[in-house]
């Protein structure tokens, strides 16, 4: 299996006399099996991620490094600075799996990536930006800490969590078998599902409210039920609102501490 390995160490300021402060660069990664579904893994500490699906057979990675993060003087005592700790990362492609890693935590990078439509995404960032995905169909595992996550026109399944940030997702198709989960601490969760989605929604907002325009069979009965038959003893604690949409299906969990939950019909 052919493996592409790209190592980029960008010497922004020194090699080129004058460099725009937001240098937009692009890398094109060909896939081992063009046309087949693939996946993208990207975890950064500082920066934003934006992924969009299009009719392409390769992965196009655009990024910019924020030069202003490096506050060290470029010339010191008559010497020029040749060290660089702004942007550096590594891209590995193996069997349609694209992995972007190795970005130093102190540098901020903003990624804008174009992938084929059938791609699974495993994205995470911590500070400094949002995660946005549009027009992609696949499995999505997305986490952010201080920033929003928005999924637009996506399909498949998703598990999304943030700490301080809104979660917005609109699905135009869902995987009928897969459960999904959306959780955060502070921020709203706003999910739009196809009107014929058969799911069992399990929702809880500790200090917020839950809203929906789906016809939901809501089961609040098991707030706290203790089931003691023969030797089996089960406690189900439930401050959860459990609602079956279109007869129910895989479990979709929505949990926030300090935000509202909106579950919308497309």
């Amino acid at each position: 299996m052919k493996t592409f390995k790209f190592l980029f160490a960008l010497l922004l300021s020194l090699l080129f006399g004058v460099v725009p402060s937001f240098a937009q660069k692009q890398i094109v990664i060909p896939l081992s099996n063009p046309g087949d579904p693939g996946q993208l893994e990207l975890g950064i500490v500082r920066g934003s991620i934006s992924v969009s699906g299009s009719d392409t057979e390769e992965v196009i990675i655009s990024y910019d490094g924020d030069r202003s993060m490096n506050e060290a003087p470029e010339n010191k005592n008559g010497l020029r600075r040749i060290s660089n700790n702004s942007v550096g990362f590594e891209v590995i492609e193996n069997d349609n799996k694209v992995e972007i890693g190795g970005a130093p935590p102190q540098s901020e990078v903003n990624f804008s990536i174009t992938v084929p439509r059938n791609f699974s995404l495993y994205l995470s960032t911590v500070n400094g930006g949002d995660v946005q995905v549009e027009n992609v169909n696949g499995e999505m595992e997305i986490s952010n800490v201080n920033g929003n996550v928005s999924l637009t026109n996506v399909g498949g399944s998703a598990t999304v969590n943030t700490v301080n940030g809104d979660i917005t997702a609109s699905f135009n198709s869902i995987n009928r078998e897969s459960p999904m989960a959306f959780s955060n601490v502070q921020g709203d969760i706003d999910i739009t599902l196809p009107s014929d989605a058969g799911v069992t929604a399990k929702m809880r907002s500790e200090w917020g409210e839950v809203y929906t325009d789906f016809n939901m069979e809501i089961d609040r009965s098991n707030r706290e039920s203790i089931e003691a038959d023969s030797d089996v003893y089960r406690v189900s604690i439930n401050n959860w609102i459990t609602g079956r949409i279109n007869g129910g299906g895989p479990e979709y969990m929505f949990k926030t501490l300090r935000g509202d939950i909106y579950l919308r019909k497309q």
Binding site: E141, T159, A181, F182, S183, R234, I237, M253
Partner: peptide
């Protein structure tokens, strides 16, 4: 590695707290 999976595990273990 996934927060939501851990979250679901809390609930599952709680329901088997016997």
């Amino acid at each position: 590695s996934n927060v939501n999976v851990r979250l679901a595990a809390v609930d599952a273990l709680t329901s088997h707290a016997n």
